[in-house]
Design a protein around this nucleic acid. Structure first.
Lengths: 345, 345
DNA sequence: TCTCCTGATGTAATCGATTGCAGGGATGGT
DNA sequence: ACCATCCCTGCAATCGATTACATCAGGAGA
């Protein structure tokens, strides 16, 4: 067990050839007589030689390494993305350097800077916020960047995201098929650009299907937000024990939540107050927070993280090609609707 | 937006000094006159210089990089480990290269080999199997390795694992306090070495507390195994509608499952057949599969993944110190008991 | 036999940052 | 005035793999 790794010079000496011949014999970059190829390969194996990727990277100006920058989500629903990216890269013998970003935009810029210092061949980033995103993409300079999960307007960056229109269409169609006539949206915030876009898309799909749609004033996209919304619905929203309540509009018969957590809160409160789900009110979620789970009590949209990872890798490796035109490409992928017990079968 | 990254030579030229002085000014490795330090730093900032970590690593024979090898779990309950390792390394400005292993032992050896080729300063590995583990640790040669989550007998490797004795003690004590007198173990396999150890530990803790303990012949540690075990229990296990059933032994009043999935299966079947949980039978799990979840219906033991990640990093960085004695160290961490509705409050 | 060519091999430069060694200028002591 | 000392600066070697260029052997053709 030597303390030092053997070098190509050691292999060459053991095989009785020059380092140049040893290199060519191992990489096959130029013809070497069969006899010496064999001798070099044997010496390499005997010494347990692993070519020094650092030296190689310095010479070739390519590290065969890609950086992945993700927001720190304790729920870990991004692990499907990590796995698929890792798998895609492994097929091309490329290493993955993982880095987490904080809410702080500067931290993201530092992350990208340190990846640049390591001379990664490309960066896949899931930006925590739009401003952070813009800055860190600028920091990447000439290194190809692919964004996942969020779009930021920029000339030079490819992105992979969700097909929002198709997502809302799928969900609205599912509800319409089950007799829904009036939808309430919970957990989306008109003030947030991405949420506002989603609300518009929902409204569009609803009106196309002849449904009414309202937005509840509960914008916190967490369990607690769902509970508050549920309590408000029971008290004032026209879904309490007196279905034909005193509100002006038609009482809602479906609730679309920003994510599973919100939906779980709404569901729990409604059930607690004796509201029949899904018979009286149907509940669905726009975002599956536990993609691994087998059983789904709430109908939800599953984000295609594995496919998104594969696409991101494909775009990045494609951008490495010499003849690449550097035009920003956008790939959108449709989510999968996972029916649960909270909508009618 | 230049296509090439600026080098130290560019910075030195812009600042009107030699590359040696520029290097010393930026790293502070040797004194440089204040005036020149300022000029170099300005030039560096103006050019957007990022020191080439590849060249630096080649010269210094240190990459400031650590490899993390994990089994591919779609449930993603290792993401807490990834995050804590990543966070610990970030504090020391060390990069994390992530790699997934397959069931195949050769794949693991290749993983380690490729990390060696990249000249990582250390490897943290969560071995998928004992044989794979031994081989891949051998492949690491002189590079420090820390094992997480599984112990393999070896002279030179530090490891971080669960304090199994404390885990079983905690769970048995919890049940004993709640009036349990007879425990049934589900989902552990006597034939598997690790499971067998756990069963022995459970038996020891049980007898010390004056409890009976039996092992059910259902060894599949998944939801389906739990369901089968539940059905068997209702039919023959003495926890059906006739509590004082015809078995020889005392009817069990607690079921300890290998993990949450098994417990969920048992729980569902028992409830379906009208067995009161936890009044009639209490249920607990030895392994929390969803550490992020807020609400726990099943009492479970939460593995201290974040702390394990921190410990692994600490051990690895400690092993890098020159005066390290190379004696294998073992760190065991106690799990946290998370009470749920499946045992009495 | 001499020349030309082909194909294999070796020599040495290269990638970019770090650092041992040598040189130079300023300072202080006598 | 002279020498020793200290501090800074620059030159050039170094890490290990790759590759342009030079070299050399051997075969074909005149």
């Amino acid at each position: 067990m030597d303390d030092e790794q053997p070098t190509l010079a050691d292999v060459a000496r053991a095989a009785g050839v020059s380092v140049a011949t040893a290199s060519r014999a191992l990489t096959g970059s130029r013809p070497v007589s069969g006899d010496r190829v064999r001798r070099v390969q044997e010496a390499s194996r005997a010494l347990g030689y692993h070519p020094n990727a650092v030296a190689s990277a310095l010479r070739l100006q390519r590290t065969e390494t890609v950086g992945l920058v993700l927001p720190r989500y304790t729920t870990g629903f991004l692990s499907a993305l990590i796995e698929s990216v890792s798998e895609g890269l492994e097929q091309h013998r490329i290493s993955l350097v993982l880095r987490y970003s904080e809410a702080d935009a500067q931290h993201d810029v530092d992350n990208v800077g340190s990846l640049i210092a390591r001379r990664v061949d490309g960066i896949i980033i899931c930006p925590p916020s739009l401003e952070a995103s813009r800055e860190s993409i600028a920091a990447a300079g000439a290194v190809p960047v692919v964004q996942v999960g969020r779009f930021v307007e920029t000339d030079r960056t490819d992105s992979v995201g969700l097909d929002e229109d198709r997502a809302t269409d799928l969900l609205v169609a599912h509800l319409a098929e089950r007799g829904v006539r009036s939808i309430l949206v919970v957990g989306l915030d008109q003030e947030v650009a991405a949420d506002s876009r989603r609300i518009r898309a929902l409204a569009l799909a609803a009106s196309a299907a002849g449904l009414e749609l309202a937005v509840a004033p509960f914008t916190a996209a967490v369990l607690e937000g769902g509970i508050r919304a549920g309590e408000w619905l029971v008290a004032e929203g026209g879904v309490g024990e007196v279905p034909e309540g005193g509100r002006g509009g038609r009482p809602v018969d479906a609730i679309v939540c920003a994510n599973d957590d919100v939906a779980a809160g709404v569901l729990a409160v409604l059930r607690m107050h004796g509201v029949a789900v899904p018979a009286r009110v149907q509940i669905a979620s726009l975002l599956d927070l536990a993609p691994g789970a087998e059983d789904h009590s709430v109908t939800t949209l599953r984000h295609p993280w594995p496919a998104m990872g594969r696409e991101a890798v494909r775009l990045l490796l494609d951008a490495r090609q010499p003849g690449h035109d550097r035009i920003a490409r956008r790939v959108t992928l449709a989510p999968q609707l996972v029916p649960g017990a909270s909508t009618l079968p």
